[in-house]
Amino acid sequence: MKITREEVLHVAKLARLNLTEEETTRLMEDMGSIIGFADKLNELDTEGVVPTAHAIPMQNAFRKDEIAESFPREEILKNAPDSDGEGFLIPKVVE
């Protein structure tokens, strides 16, 4: 399986990763061999087989829509790389 440079760069953009030249070249090779390995699945006829998302049969797990206690703001902001004490700070997005 061949993965092109363009494919790697497209996927990296979707995944929000900036790759170095070296990483890009390495990923072309690694993704090629791993995706190639996954092509083995095509040996199986899966026509009409229902896909399994979870190993146990599950329905949607709902809870009652009730107001419960939440974390204090300062607790949550303690881990923020940048904060003004009220919210998370990010670079300006609207000029």
């Binding site: 996927v11 990296a12 929000r16 990763l17 990483e23 990923l27 690694d30 993704m31 791993i34 995706i35």
Partner: peptide, 23 residues
């Protein structure tokens, strides 16, 4: 900010899996 943080914060194997999964 997202891209640089993720590129510097994740190691090679994690990036590889994210790339495979995204693909």
């Amino acid at each position: 900010l997202y891209c640089q943080t993720r590129s510097e914060g994740f190691g090679a194997e994690v990036k590889r899996r994210i790339m495979i999964g995204t693909y």
